[in-house]
Design a protein around this nucleic acid. Structure first.
Lengths: 110, 110
DNA sequence: ATAACATTTCTATAATTATCTAAATATGGA
DNA sequence: TCCATATTTAGATAATTATAGAAATGTTAT
């Protein structure tokens, strides 16, 4: 991952509505792609934001590679892109921190 | 880590000058605290930004818990707070992704 | 005490972002 | 075809952020 992509992903997540959106989509995640994700309208209702506002944020998350969209009838279903999040975490730990970040407690307790 | 802290850290890193600042400080990191870090002036010169601009960004990074400062004579030495970065990465992987992110290739290659 | 240095705070400004209402686009069904 | 539904795009506005020059603060040496 390049720095410019990392900045886009970081910026996408650095906003309450968008971070909540991503977390909500993670909860709605499923290994089989068919049933994973949530429709834009359902998301907006669940998060309590106006449809155009959520649309703006979803575009931001999409641009950053953190969510994907597919059409299903009249709805557009958004899904969390877990690989994008993993790539960001890897960038922070490996490239940015150069592997020098001490591992978290959970990982050393075995 | 709480969501609000994660948002601050994400926002702090989602800006080119600040991300470069953090990366530069990681390179200047040392296990013994005495010799770790860089002075604000040296950083500003290295990054090619005006002193007040860097000061603004350093405050932002400090507020987010990603850098620490100590005075040494007339200089103020900034150091990367690797624990803060680790806490952010953990938040993204554990809390936000709920551990569902596939591990990166490097980690599965053993 | 004064001067030189290092950094921050103040002030102003330009640029970006988040939000809403209204209008446009796309889909599915009667 | 016409209508209702789902979502996005356009346009306007308020709020936030990044930046730099000028002034203020704190430190060291003479």
């Amino acid at each position: 991952m390049e720095m410019i992509n990392a900045i886009e992903a970081l910026g996408a997540l650095a906003q309450e509505t968008r971070l909540e959106t991503f977390r909500t989509l993670v909860r709605a995640h499923s290994p089989n792609a068919e049933e994973a994700g949530l429709a834009a309208g359902g998301l907006a209702a669940q998060l309590g934001v106006a449809a155009p506002t959520l649309s703006f944020h979803l575009k931001e998350l999409t641009r950053a590679g953190l969510v994907s969209a597919r059409r299903d009838g009249r709805s557009i279903i958004y899904t969390a892109n877990l690989g994008g999040m993993r790539a960001l975490a890897d960038y922070l730990l490996e490239d940015c921190c150069q592997g020098a970040c001490a591992p978290s407690l959970e990982e050393t307790e075995t």
